[in-house]
Design a protein around this nucleic acid. Sequence first.
DNA 1: CCGGTGCAATAACATTTGTTATCAAATTGG
DNA 2: CCAATTTGATAACAAATGTTATTGCACCGG
Lengths: 191, 191
Amino acid sequence: MFEQFKDKFPLDNNTWDTYVSYFKRLEVPARTVLLNEGETSKKLFIIEKGCIRVWFNNNGKDITTQFFFENNMVASIESFRKSTPSQVTIETIEPCVVWWIFKKDLDSILEAIKSTPRLRDLFINGIFERTFEYMKHFISFIKDTPQQRYLNLIKEKPQIILRVPQHYIASYLGVTTVHLSRLKSKLAKEK
Amino acid sequence: MFEQFKDKFPLDNNTWDTYVSYFKRLEVPARTVLLNEGETSKKLFIIEKGCIRVWFNNNGKDITTQFFFENNMVASIESFRKSTPSQVTIETIEPCVVWWIFKKDLDSILEAIKSTPRLRDLFINGIFERTFEYMKHFISFIKDTPQQRYLNLIKEKPQIILRVPQHYIASYLGVTTVHLSRLKSKLAKEK
DNA sequence: CCGGTGCAATAACATTTGTTATCAAATTGG
DNA sequence: CCAATTTGATAACAAATGTTATTGCACCGG
């Protein structure tokens, strides 16, 4: 699982093995909650196999904000960083194999690598990239219609269309399931 | 202008003065463009007086995504960090007094302070907070109606309502000027 | 003081999107 | 293999939001 990342980190074998040893493997069925809304996030997950969604409850309806697939890191990022109650639930969609690490262990690793300029900058860059991703997704919500967002999704993240049930996608796009169904049939006719 | 920030930074007077000396003062009228969409951002601004909006062109209509006021830092953040063409325009709304610094100078300051753990962590924390702000704004776009977003804005950022022309606010809320007008008159009647 | 321009309100109408209900197909668990 | 549940499509109607056009007001620069 971790070998593929190894060459990105300028660490000697011993240090690397120590870091990796903090991670634990976990196998769970579909629809398993890994973190509940309101709980404080203490674990970061990396997906070996399967997919996961992040969602929150809005007046009884759940709204999915993100999807994650193989090799993605998943956490309720604000809750994890600040140790505050999570605004969101993290739940598997498919049966999953994940690796997880305790926040306290990750914190100590991060603190250690921050003194290595190259790793520190890799870390900072990672946060920036995450922000930019968010900004991009946000802007598409302002400028595009739901139909356009759906077309973008097909083009840019086809694995979401292929692997995720449609009602999760609907809330991710900001529309009802009924409306997404309508859009699909309209687009099919136009072809 | 900078005295108010000084005690937050554990720097000796000399270092502080050197850093501050990189900033230049600029006075501009309302509706002045500080960065054009498509240009690469080379300057970061800090507002001493006035307000600024960030917007982009979407099929001939401009969409405002952010407002900034006194003491805020403003830049096209992705363009500034990556030296890529900016997706947005930065423009004054009121006559403004701003201080600005060249990217290369700021980069050298940042590189220097990153070796001071306390400043480095302050910096990292700043990026996280920026991301969390974005996430919050984004989530309100998914879960709230335009009317609710308008009410939130009145409560949480009243200076935007007071100082910014309404048609900029409309696009910030994701509605047309006509619809915002309608919402206002509806809310006035309900009282 | 005049004329242009920017800004906001309003009306009438069009379009998009949500709501509720029903049905059928697919999937899952026993 | 069957029953229950999940998922997706569709229709009919309601509500929200966009479009276009008109009007009036305020402000600014000659």
